[in-house]
Design a protein around this nucleic acid. Sequence first.
DNA 1: TTCCTAACTAACTGGTTGGTTAAACCAACC
DNA 2: GGTTGGTTTAACCAACCAGTTAGTTAGGAA
Lengths: 211, 211
Amino acid sequence: MGSTRDPDRRDRILDAASAVFAEKGFAGARVDDIADRAGVNKAMLYYHVGDKTALYSAVLLRNFERVRVALDEALATGGSARARLEAVITALTRMVQRHPDHPRMMLREIASGATSLEPEVLAAMLEVVGVVRALIAEGTAAGEFRAIDPVLTHLTLVGAVVFLNATAPIRNRAAALGPGFSLPEPTTDIARFIKEMLLDGLAADRKPGGS
Amino acid sequence: MGSTRDPDRRDRILDAASAVFAEKGFAGARVDDIADRAGVNKAMLYYHVGDKTALYSAVLLRNFERVRVALDEALATGGSARARLEAVITALTRMVQRHPDHPRMMLREIASGATSLEPEVLAAMLEVVGVVRALIAEGTAAGEFRAIDPVLTHLTLVGAVVFLNATAPIRNRAAALGPGFSLPEPTTDIARFIKEMLLDGLAADRKPGGS
DNA sequence: TTCCTAACTAACTGGTTGGTTAAACCAACC
DNA sequence: GGTTGGTTTAACCAACCAGTTAGTTAGGAA
């Protein structure tokens, strides 16, 4: 039976937890803080979701599901592998900007070696990785992309999207320190940059033989 | 005056702190744990370095200095901007693999928005960024690189190096879960991949008109 | 009305943790 | 052999924090 008082209390709890975990990390997050932001008594977190680790896993699972849905939509646009890859980059960029909590949490997970990531969450992540990997492999097979490692390519892509967006606060702080460093880019600019960079490379003259 | 017993006790403390901060993050790190790993009494940390935040900043400052030196060496090899950029990528990759603590700490800093990064540390970081940024700008001016945002390019580059290396543990865990996912790459492979990817792009056919 | 159960709360607990302190130690110099 | 001053230690403490618990509220069923 759902709550008689507030049916989506669990969602509000997960929202608050996502924000706090992203901001402070697992160890830095205070359960009382999460409860306060969610506007509920702390014991309710334990009643509705579970302990701190269960809360953490629940947040990651929900957030990965969001990404998976967004990627499925991007792939559904059809077209060439390149066109779909561009759609994926756009979707990822929009996702990262609309729900910045998720990449922030994952950055910390990567830093810690994902030692505490539950198998369930790991599986959700691999599902997302698989989508992009398959797309790149398909593009390579179709002759659209160079023969290139699909997993490393996927990581470079995600790394670029996450880095360019997640470093925005640090760049703003840098801009405040010294002049001529600021880079307040609009959403579309970052996505466009990544597409150009990854697809066409940095070199002005492309060497065809340079496998 | 330095310690009469052990002149590099401070270095040993910083080494231990670096390892623990990288593994657990600032909030997750236990001062007692750092002291144990350094093989000293906890009070020695406060005597030689300072409190937990001072310890953290001292570690980052030392680690950034290492990166700066490595980049200076890479730039000193001379040659075209492209050649020097390749040297930089090699140096960064080697650096990340030899001292993985630093990128792990910085990943967490990026995740938290660098709100707790002291100005002194921020300046050390900007110095490193400036080196690569200048090199890219020079290459663009010389016609070697396309006209492209140097800071975003730098971030993409660093993001790729860090991501491809820092995700190794998570990929190994993934490989243990499902078959056909593993990617145990040797050092040089990752550096070569990044060079090809960033310089020549992903596309099999480069479109010259693509801005 | 009475009883039952899910939802909720305030207050507490037991363990942890960053930081301190007073005393001890030790090498050098007089 | 005594003194000085940097170095080291064990023990301690106050604050903090995840998790629990005893008890309350409200709505629906009998």
